[in-house]
């Protein structure tokens, strides 16, 4: 296997891994606080689940980037296309916008949703507001994803 392919694979690992770390920490924070609320008010389970699902999308963006690189390099069907080392570095660097954005936005979204669970505990009728406030952070992950996608689709020609 070429060094260039290895570089692309490191990029895939970075994007998927960082997204997953962000989602793990974010969802972990929410479920911890959510379980506390559940012990008092078991009927809030669907809403807590909806809040906990918000930071899970971060890992999905990482996964999407990973799939796209695997498809573009032909690795998904086992027939890797030849490309030079510089292109390999480009694949690696393209992983950074989506990786960093998903890592930190996942953590921050976990924090925000923890506050949302406080809304849920005291004013359940304002649940939509909790969702909207939490989803504000989603933008930054999406911006990272858009740039990474542009690099892979438009910037890299193989």
């Amino acid at each position: 296997m070429n060094f260039s392919v290895v570089l692309a694979l490191v990029g895939v690992g970075l994007a998927v891994g960082m997204g997953a770390i962000g989602s793990c920490i974010g969802v972990g924070k929410i479920t911890k606080v959510g379980a506390g609320l559940l012990s008092k008010d078991p009927e809030r389970f669907p809403q807590i689940l909806a809040l906990a699902a918000l930071p899970s999308t971060q890992s999905l963006y990482g996964l999407l980037f990973g799939f796209i690189v695997l498809i573009k390099t032909g690795l998904i069907s086992g027939k890797a296309i030849d490309f030079d080392v510089n292109t390999g570095y480009a694949f690696l660097l393209a992983a950074f916008p989506v990786g960093i954005a998903t890592l930190f936005s996942g953590i921050a979204q976990g924090e925000a949703a923890t506050g949302g669970i406080k809304i849920l505990a005291q004013k359940p009728e304002n649940f939509t507001q909790a969702i909207v406030l939490t989803s504000l952070i989603e933008s930054f992950a999406i911006f990272g994803l858009v740039i990474s996608l542009l690099i892979v689709f438009v910037g890299i020609n193989i």
Binding site: L64, I142, F143
Partner: peptide
């Protein structure tokens, strides 16, 4: 901010294809 719609739509479509 509206580019999010395309990013999400693309995510769904590509994952469906995968």
């Amino acid at each position: 901010s509206y580019t999010r719609l395309i990013a999400i739509g693309l995510t769904g479509a590509i994952i469906a294809d995968v």
